[in-house]
Amino acid sequence: MTKETAMNFKAATLWGMIVVLFALVPVLASSPYQINLASHVLIWSLFAVSFNMLWGVTGMLSLGQALFYGLGAYSVGLLVNYLGSAWYLPGIGIGLLAAALLAFFLGLLVIRVGGVYFTMLTLAFGQLAWQITFKWYDFTGGDDGIQGIMPPGLLGNKTAYYYFLLVLVLVSIWILKRMAYSPFGLILRCVQQNPDRVRFLGRRVRRNQLRIYIISSFFSALAGSLMVGVDSSIHTDMLYWTTSGEVILMSVLGGINQFFGPFVGAVAIILIEDYVGAYTEYWSLIIGTIMLVMVLGFPKGLVGEARRLIMRFGRTETGR
Protein backbone atom coordinates (compact mmCIF):
# COMPACT_ATOMS: atom_id res chain seq x y z
CA MET A 1 0.00 0.00 0.00
CA THR A 2 2.79 2.43 0.87
CA LYS A 3 4.32 1.75 -2.53
CA GLU A 4 1.04 2.68 -4.20
CA THR A 5 0.69 5.83 -2.11
CA ALA A 6 4.23 6.84 -3.02
CA MET A 7 3.48 6.25 -6.69
CA ASN A 8 0.26 8.27 -6.46
CA PHE A 9 2.19 11.06 -4.83
CA LYS A 10 4.82 11.04 -7.57
CA ALA A 11 2.13 11.04 -10.26
CA ALA A 12 0.27 13.91 -8.57
CA THR A 13 3.50 15.93 -8.32
CA LEU A 14 4.22 15.35 -12.00
CA TRP A 15 0.71 16.43 -12.98
CA GLY A 16 0.94 19.46 -10.73
CA MET A 17 4.18 20.54 -12.37
CA ILE A 18 2.80 20.13 -15.89
CA VAL A 19 -0.38 22.07 -15.06
CA VAL A 20 1.46 24.92 -13.33
CA LEU A 21 4.08 25.14 -16.07
CA PHE A 22 1.56 25.43 -18.89
CA ALA A 23 -0.84 27.60 -16.86
CA LEU A 24 1.94 30.13 -16.30
CA VAL A 25 2.78 30.48 -20.01
CA PRO A 26 0.46 33.47 -20.68
CA VAL A 27 1.71 35.18 -17.51
CA LEU A 28 5.39 34.77 -18.36
CA ALA A 29 5.09 35.13 -22.13
CA SER A 30 6.68 38.23 -23.57
CA SER A 31 4.78 37.96 -26.84
CA PRO A 32 1.60 36.34 -28.18
CA TYR A 33 3.88 34.14 -30.25
CA GLN A 34 4.94 32.19 -27.17
CA ILE A 35 1.31 31.49 -26.29
CA ASN A 36 0.85 30.30 -29.84
CA LEU A 37 3.89 28.03 -29.51
CA ALA A 38 2.65 26.58 -26.20
CA SER A 39 -0.73 25.93 -27.85
CA HIS A 40 0.97 24.00 -30.64
CA VAL A 41 2.92 21.98 -28.08
CA LEU A 42 -0.26 21.07 -26.16
CA ILE A 43 -2.33 20.14 -29.19
CA TRP A 44 0.40 18.02 -30.77
CA SER A 45 0.91 16.35 -27.39
CA LEU A 46 -2.73 15.30 -27.29
CA PHE A 47 -2.58 14.12 -30.90
CA ALA A 48 0.61 12.13 -30.25
CA VAL A 49 -0.60 10.59 -26.99
CA SER A 50 -3.90 9.50 -28.52
CA PHE A 51 -2.05 8.10 -31.54
CA ASN A 52 0.27 6.14 -29.29
CA MET A 53 -2.66 4.47 -27.52
CA LEU A 54 -3.13 2.83 -30.89
CA TRP A 55 0.51 2.11 -31.74
CA GLY A 56 2.63 1.89 -28.60
CA VAL A 57 -0.11 0.34 -26.47
CA THR A 58 -2.12 -1.84 -28.85
CA GLY A 59 0.46 -2.35 -31.60
CA MET A 60 -1.60 -0.90 -34.45
CA LEU A 61 0.61 1.38 -36.54
CA SER A 62 -1.80 3.73 -38.28
CA LEU A 63 -0.42 5.98 -40.96
CA GLY A 64 -3.76 7.71 -41.34
CA GLN A 65 -4.65 9.44 -38.09
CA ALA A 66 -4.35 12.78 -39.92
CA LEU A 67 -7.71 11.83 -41.43
CA PHE A 68 -9.33 12.30 -38.01
CA TYR A 69 -7.19 15.25 -37.02
CA GLY A 70 -8.25 16.93 -40.26
CA LEU A 71 -11.86 15.87 -39.84
CA GLY A 72 -11.98 17.63 -36.47
CA ALA A 73 -10.39 20.75 -37.93
CA TYR A 74 -12.55 20.88 -41.07
CA SER A 75 -15.78 20.31 -39.12
CA VAL A 76 -15.12 23.42 -37.08
CA GLY A 77 -13.61 25.42 -39.95
CA LEU A 78 -16.31 24.72 -42.51
CA LEU A 79 -19.20 25.21 -40.09
CA VAL A 80 -17.81 28.54 -38.90
CA ASN A 81 -17.04 29.59 -42.45
CA TYR A 82 -20.49 28.82 -43.84
CA LEU A 83 -22.76 29.25 -40.81
CA GLY A 84 -20.99 31.75 -38.56
CA SER A 85 -18.76 31.72 -35.52
CA ALA A 86 -21.59 30.62 -33.21
CA TRP A 87 -21.00 27.21 -34.76
CA TYR A 88 -17.48 26.98 -33.36
CA LEU A 89 -18.26 24.92 -30.25
CA PRO A 90 -21.05 22.86 -31.86
CA GLY A 91 -18.56 22.30 -34.69
CA ILE A 92 -16.14 20.67 -32.23
CA GLY A 93 -18.93 18.40 -30.98
CA ILE A 94 -20.05 17.49 -34.49
CA GLY A 95 -16.45 16.79 -35.50
CA LEU A 96 -15.97 14.47 -32.53
CA LEU A 97 -19.19 12.62 -33.28
CA ALA A 98 -18.28 12.35 -36.97
CA ALA A 99 -14.80 11.06 -36.08
CA ALA A 100 -16.20 8.38 -33.75
CA LEU A 101 -18.73 7.25 -36.37
CA LEU A 102 -16.21 7.25 -39.19
CA ALA A 103 -13.69 5.37 -37.05
CA PHE A 104 -16.33 2.77 -36.28
CA PHE A 105 -17.19 2.06 -39.92
CA LEU A 106 -13.64 2.47 -41.22
CA GLY A 107 -12.40 0.34 -38.33
CA LEU A 108 -14.69 -2.52 -39.35
CA LEU A 109 -12.85 -2.47 -42.68
CA VAL A 110 -9.23 -1.84 -41.76
CA ILE A 111 -9.00 -3.90 -38.57
CA ARG A 112 -9.83 -7.06 -40.48
CA VAL A 113 -6.24 -7.04 -41.69
CA GLY A 114 -3.23 -6.92 -39.45
CA GLY A 115 0.30 -5.58 -39.43
CA VAL A 116 1.59 -3.72 -42.46
CA TYR A 117 -1.72 -4.16 -44.32
CA PHE A 118 -3.48 -2.22 -41.60
CA THR A 119 -0.86 0.52 -41.95
CA MET A 120 -1.27 0.64 -45.73
CA LEU A 121 -5.07 0.75 -45.56
CA THR A 122 -5.06 3.59 -43.04
CA LEU A 123 -2.62 5.44 -45.31
CA ALA A 124 -4.86 4.85 -48.32
CA PHE A 125 -7.99 6.16 -46.61
CA GLY A 126 -6.08 9.10 -45.19
CA GLN A 127 -4.76 10.09 -48.61
CA LEU A 128 -8.22 9.63 -50.11
CA ALA A 129 -9.64 12.16 -47.66
CA TRP A 130 -6.76 14.52 -48.39
CA GLN A 131 -7.28 14.22 -52.14
CA ILE A 132 -11.00 14.96 -51.87
CA THR A 133 -10.36 18.00 -49.68
CA PHE A 134 -7.61 19.14 -52.02
CA LYS A 135 -9.69 18.88 -55.20
CA TRP A 136 -13.02 20.16 -53.86
CA TYR A 137 -11.92 23.78 -54.10
CA ASP A 138 -15.38 25.39 -54.06
CA PHE A 139 -16.29 23.86 -50.74
CA THR A 140 -13.01 23.37 -48.85
CA GLY A 141 -10.85 26.09 -50.35
CA GLY A 142 -8.57 23.37 -51.72
CA ASP A 143 -4.89 24.11 -51.37
CA ASP A 144 -5.58 27.62 -50.06
CA GLY A 145 -7.55 26.33 -47.10
CA ILE A 146 -9.76 28.77 -45.23
CA GLN A 147 -8.42 31.68 -43.23
CA GLY A 148 -9.85 33.96 -40.60
CA ILE A 149 -11.78 31.39 -38.60
CA MET A 150 -12.39 33.01 -35.22
CA PRO A 151 -13.90 31.41 -32.13
CA PRO A 152 -16.90 33.38 -30.79
CA GLY A 153 -17.11 35.75 -27.80
CA LEU A 154 -14.60 35.44 -25.04
CA LEU A 155 -12.79 32.60 -26.81
CA GLY A 156 -11.77 35.12 -29.47
CA ASN A 157 -9.25 36.36 -26.92
CA LYS A 158 -5.98 34.48 -27.45
CA THR A 159 -5.25 34.06 -23.74
CA ALA A 160 -8.77 32.86 -22.97
CA TYR A 161 -8.58 30.41 -25.87
CA TYR A 162 -5.26 29.15 -24.59
CA TYR A 163 -6.76 28.29 -21.19
CA PHE A 164 -9.75 26.71 -22.93
CA LEU A 165 -7.55 24.36 -24.90
CA LEU A 166 -5.20 23.82 -21.96
CA VAL A 167 -8.08 22.42 -19.89
CA LEU A 168 -9.42 20.26 -22.72
CA VAL A 169 -6.00 18.88 -23.63
CA LEU A 170 -4.96 18.09 -20.06
CA VAL A 171 -8.32 16.52 -19.20
CA SER A 172 -8.14 14.40 -22.36
CA ILE A 173 -4.60 13.24 -21.63
CA TRP A 174 -5.64 12.49 -18.07
CA ILE A 175 -8.55 10.36 -19.32
CA LEU A 176 -6.24 8.50 -21.70
CA LYS A 177 -3.73 7.93 -18.92
CA ARG A 178 -6.38 6.44 -16.66
CA MET A 179 -7.41 4.24 -19.57
CA ALA A 180 -3.83 3.09 -20.15
CA TYR A 181 -3.49 1.80 -16.59
CA SER A 182 -7.00 0.31 -16.35
CA PRO A 183 -8.03 -3.28 -17.07
CA PHE A 184 -8.99 -2.11 -20.57
CA GLY A 185 -5.46 -0.75 -21.06
CA LEU A 186 -3.98 -4.00 -19.80
CA ILE A 187 -6.02 -6.01 -22.30
CA LEU A 188 -4.88 -3.64 -25.08
CA ARG A 189 -1.23 -4.29 -24.19
CA CYS A 190 -1.99 -8.00 -24.09
CA VAL A 191 -3.52 -7.72 -27.57
CA GLN A 192 -0.23 -6.30 -28.81
CA GLN A 193 1.98 -8.87 -27.11
CA ASN A 194 0.01 -12.05 -27.70
CA PRO A 195 -3.36 -11.78 -29.47
CA ASP A 196 -3.82 -15.56 -29.56
CA ARG A 197 -3.56 -15.76 -25.80
CA VAL A 198 -6.12 -12.97 -25.46
CA ARG A 199 -8.61 -15.13 -27.38
CA PHE A 200 -7.96 -17.91 -24.90
CA LEU A 201 -8.69 -15.49 -22.08
CA GLY A 202 -12.14 -15.33 -23.61
CA ARG A 203 -11.70 -11.81 -25.04
CA ARG A 204 -12.26 -10.62 -28.58
CA VAL A 205 -9.10 -9.17 -30.14
CA ARG A 206 -10.73 -7.24 -32.97
CA ARG A 207 -13.41 -5.75 -30.79
CA ASN A 208 -10.79 -4.31 -28.44
CA GLN A 209 -8.80 -3.04 -31.42
CA LEU A 210 -11.91 -1.36 -32.76
CA ARG A 211 -12.63 0.28 -29.41
CA ILE A 212 -9.19 1.85 -29.14
CA TYR A 213 -9.26 2.85 -32.82
CA ILE A 214 -12.46 4.82 -32.15
CA ILE A 215 -11.12 6.35 -28.94
CA SER A 216 -7.80 7.32 -30.51
CA SER A 217 -9.56 8.84 -33.52
CA PHE A 218 -11.95 10.76 -31.27
CA PHE A 219 -9.10 12.48 -29.42
CA SER A 220 -7.17 13.06 -32.65
CA ALA A 221 -10.22 14.91 -33.94
CA LEU A 222 -10.35 16.96 -30.75
CA ALA A 223 -6.72 17.96 -31.27
CA GLY A 224 -7.49 19.01 -34.84
CA SER A 225 -10.55 21.03 -33.90
CA LEU A 226 -8.66 22.88 -31.16
CA MET A 227 -5.90 23.80 -33.62
CA VAL A 228 -8.37 25.82 -35.74
CA GLY A 229 -8.64 28.57 -33.12
CA VAL A 230 -4.87 28.72 -32.61
CA ASP A 231 -3.94 29.39 -36.21
CA SER A 232 -7.38 30.83 -37.16
CA SER A 233 -7.25 28.68 -40.27
CA ILE A 234 -7.62 25.23 -41.80
CA HIS A 235 -5.49 23.85 -44.60
CA THR A 236 -5.12 20.55 -46.46
CA ASP A 237 -1.73 19.83 -44.85
CA MET A 238 -3.67 18.85 -41.75
CA LEU A 239 -4.96 15.82 -43.68
CA TYR A 240 -1.73 14.99 -45.49
CA TRP A 241 0.10 11.77 -44.60
CA THR A 242 3.13 13.67 -43.25
CA THR A 243 0.88 14.89 -40.43
CA SER A 244 0.25 11.25 -39.55
CA GLY A 245 4.00 10.69 -39.82
CA GLU A 246 4.72 13.56 -37.44
CA VAL A 247 3.01 11.81 -34.50
CA ILE A 248 4.98 8.66 -35.28
CA LEU A 249 8.22 10.66 -35.00
CA MET A 250 7.04 12.22 -31.73
CA SER A 251 6.16 8.84 -30.27
CA VAL A 252 9.49 7.28 -31.27
CA LEU A 253 11.47 10.24 -29.96
CA GLY A 254 9.72 10.20 -26.58
CA GLY A 255 9.37 6.43 -26.30
CA ILE A 256 6.42 4.38 -27.48
CA ASN A 257 6.30 2.15 -24.41
CA GLN A 258 5.90 5.06 -22.01
CA PHE A 259 2.59 6.84 -21.56
CA PHE A 260 4.24 10.28 -21.44
CA GLY A 261 6.75 9.40 -24.17
CA PRO A 262 4.73 10.91 -27.04
CA PHE A 263 4.00 13.96 -24.88
CA VAL A 264 7.70 14.61 -24.31
CA GLY A 265 8.41 13.78 -27.95
CA ALA A 266 5.83 16.33 -29.11
CA VAL A 267 7.27 19.02 -26.86
CA ALA A 268 10.78 18.30 -28.14
CA ILE A 269 9.89 18.23 -31.84
CA ILE A 270 7.72 21.37 -31.77
CA LEU A 271 10.42 23.30 -29.89
CA ILE A 272 13.19 22.05 -32.19
CA GLU A 273 11.15 22.98 -35.26
CA ASP A 274 10.58 26.41 -33.80
CA TYR A 275 14.07 27.28 -32.58
CA VAL A 276 16.08 25.61 -35.31
CA GLY A 277 13.56 26.82 -37.88
CA ALA A 278 14.39 30.39 -36.87
CA TYR A 279 18.01 29.91 -37.94
CA THR A 280 17.78 27.64 -40.93
CA GLU A 281 15.20 26.29 -43.29
CA TYR A 282 16.94 22.92 -43.06
CA TRP A 283 15.49 22.17 -39.63
CA SER A 284 14.12 18.85 -40.82
CA LEU A 285 17.74 17.77 -41.33
CA ILE A 286 18.31 18.30 -37.62
CA ILE A 287 15.15 16.37 -36.73
CA GLY A 288 16.25 13.58 -39.08
CA THR A 289 19.68 13.37 -37.46
CA ILE A 290 18.19 13.31 -33.98
CA MET A 291 15.75 10.58 -35.00
CA LEU A 292 18.59 8.53 -36.46
CA VAL A 293 20.62 8.79 -33.26
CA MET A 294 17.59 7.98 -31.11
CA VAL A 295 16.43 4.97 -33.08
CA LEU A 296 19.92 3.47 -33.38
CA GLY A 297 21.27 4.38 -29.97
CA PHE A 298 18.32 4.93 -27.65
CA PRO A 299 15.40 2.89 -28.93
CA LYS A 300 13.45 3.30 -25.70
CA GLY A 301 13.06 7.03 -26.44
CA LEU A 302 13.71 10.02 -24.18
CA VAL A 303 11.33 8.96 -21.41
CA GLY A 304 12.24 5.27 -21.62
CA GLU A 305 15.99 5.93 -21.43
CA ALA A 306 15.55 8.44 -18.62
CA ARG A 307 13.53 5.92 -16.66
CA ARG A 308 16.22 3.27 -17.23
CA LEU A 309 18.86 5.65 -15.87
CA ILE A 310 16.76 6.47 -12.81
CA MET A 311 16.22 2.77 -12.13
CA ARG A 312 19.93 2.06 -12.45
CA PHE A 313 20.80 4.88 -10.00
CA GLY A 314 18.00 3.80 -7.67
CA ARG A 315 19.44 0.30 -7.61
CA THR A 316 23.00 1.37 -6.79
CA GLU A 317 21.74 3.62 -4.01
CA THR A 318 19.93 0.82 -2.24
CA GLY A 319 22.85 -1.47 -2.96
CA ARG A 320 20.90 -3.93 -5.09
Partner: peptide
Protein backbone atom coordinates in the same frame (compact mmCIF):
# COMPACT_ATOMS: atom_id res chain seq x y z
CA UNK B 1 2.34 -15.45 -21.99
CA UNK B 2 2.40 -11.64 -22.13
CA UNK B 3 6.19 -11.10 -22.05
CA UNK B 4 6.31 -7.37 -21.30
CA UNK B 5 3.80 -7.42 -18.47
CA UNK B 6 4.60 -8.33 -14.88
CA UNK B 7 4.04 -11.88 -13.74
CA UNK B 8 1.20 -10.59 -11.58
CA UNK B 9 -0.48 -8.75 -14.45
CA UNK B 10 -0.28 -11.85 -16.65
CA UNK B 11 -2.50 -13.66 -14.17
CA UNK B 12 -4.50 -10.57 -13.25
CA UNK B 13 -5.51 -10.06 -16.88
CA UNK B 14 -7.01 -13.55 -16.87
CA UNK B 15 -8.75 -12.95 -13.52
CA UNK B 16 -10.20 -9.67 -14.80
CA UNK B 17 -11.41 -11.48 -17.88
CA UNK B 18 -13.14 -14.16 -15.82
CA UNK B 19 -14.77 -11.50 -13.63
CA UNK B 20 -15.97 -9.65 -16.74
CA UNK B 21 -14.04 -6.52 -15.83
CA UNK B 22 -11.84 -6.03 -18.89
CA UNK B 23 -14.01 -3.21 -20.21
CA UNK B 24 -13.44 -1.07 -17.12
CA UNK B 25 -11.35 1.87 -18.27
CA UNK B 26 -11.29 4.30 -15.37
CA UNK B 27 -9.69 2.71 -12.33
CA UNK B 28 -6.15 1.41 -12.23
CA UNK B 29 -5.78 -2.38 -12.35
Amino acid sequence: IFPDETVLDNIRAACLSRLGQTRKFWRSV
